[in-house]
């Protein structure tokens, strides 16, 4: 073994395509289940949450405005980037969760495949969910799904990597942008995942990753008027989940309750609105002019 001193990574937030420390200047120690200290993670504040929502909002329209094909290629690119760093992530997942190396690598491989899976959804779910409506009149009537907007994800606590990707990928595949609060005690793989996204042609702000205390930040995210949906998958405390849902109700956010299991299309649907367009289709209307 070399006696060279290892250069350790500083784990920072991922907001708006950059890697800032918390504006509060705070951090908290992160350990593996056996008590080994791993690193200090930034302890995000309410203000960091607001900054992340602002970055997500700014990125949302351009992201939704990209072609579905391009969004798919970018998600696929993220899978390519992750494949190249599978070893590193397996190690981080193993340290974070105490999983055996093989199992941790399996988790990372599943995460890569899930990104590929969602890459394939971007240019298909609108065709699966939308369509022409046979209204009883001379009208073209068409319904198409649209992204909800900015989604906040309280990521699963005990499945800190695959669980997070399974929650974030469908949201962004459907053209939303996301603010993700990583697993409180196991945030490191999620923070490193920001580095993968930053090198995948994913525009800054489409995914923003925070580390910190759900009880501290989540109420502000749930109450934030510029957030359109909130995923409470990672909120284990039923009382906190209920209060977050109540806070979200004030601005009528779409809520995914903890424990709500959905398949991939269900997850895409969760963060989707429908828009219906009517247009006259008759020659009488055409002859009348003005249309």
């Amino acid at each position: 073994m070399s006696d060279r001193l290892r250069v350790k990574k500083t784990y920072k937030l991922y907001v708006g395509g950059k890697f800032p420390r918390s504006e509060s200047g705070r951090s908290y120690p992160v350990s593996s289940p056996d008590g080994t200290e791993l690193a200090n993670a930034a302890l995000a504040s309410r203000k960091d949450g607001r900054d992340a929502v602002a970055a997500a909002r700014k990125a949302q329209r351009p992201w939704a405005g990209q072609t579905a094909y391009l969004r798919g290629q970018i998600l696929y690119r993220a899978a390519e980037m992750l494949e190249g760093r599978a070893g590193q992530f397996a190690e981080e997942v193993a340290e974070a969760t105490g999983a055996e190396p093989d199992a941790a690598l399996g988790t990372v491989e599943s995460a890569i495949d899930r990104l590929v899976h969602y890459a394939g959804w971007t240019d298909k779910y609108t065709s699966v969910l939308g369509g022409a409506n046979p209204v009883a009149g001379p009208y073209f009537n068409h319904t198409t799904p649209e992204p909800l907007g900015v989604i906040c994800v309280i990521a699963p606590q005990d499945d800190p990597f695959l669980g997070l990707i399974e929650a974030v990928a469908p949201a962004i595949a459907a053209g939303n942008t996301a603010v993700v609060l990583a697993s409180e005690t196991k945030p490191l793989p999620a923070l490193s995942f920001g580095e993968v996204l930053a090198t995948s042609d994913l525009p800054g702000g489409v995914v923003n990753v925070l580390s910190g205390r759900a009880a501290e930040i989540a109420p502000h995210l749930a109450a934030h008027a510029d957030v359109n949906g909130i995923d409470l998958s990672g909120v284990a405390d039923a009382e906190l989940a209920a209060s977050l849902e109540a806070a979200a109700a004030e601005t009528l956010k779409v809520v995914r309750r903890p424990g709500r299991q959905l398949d991939s299309l269900g997850l895409l649907r969760q963060w989707t609105e429908y828009k219906t367009v009517w247009h006259p289709a008759g020659m009488a209307a055409a002859a009348g002019g003005g249309y």
Binding site: Y69, G72, Y76, H117, G120, D123, K124, V128
Partner: peptide, 18 residues
């Protein structure tokens, strides 16, 4: 290339094709 990319995505989603 787009045609391959597009159909690659269908391979594990055929049950959703209606």
């Amino acid at each position: 290339a787009q045609h391959f990319f597009y159909h690659a995505g269908w391979a594990d989603k055929l049950a959703y094709a209606g």
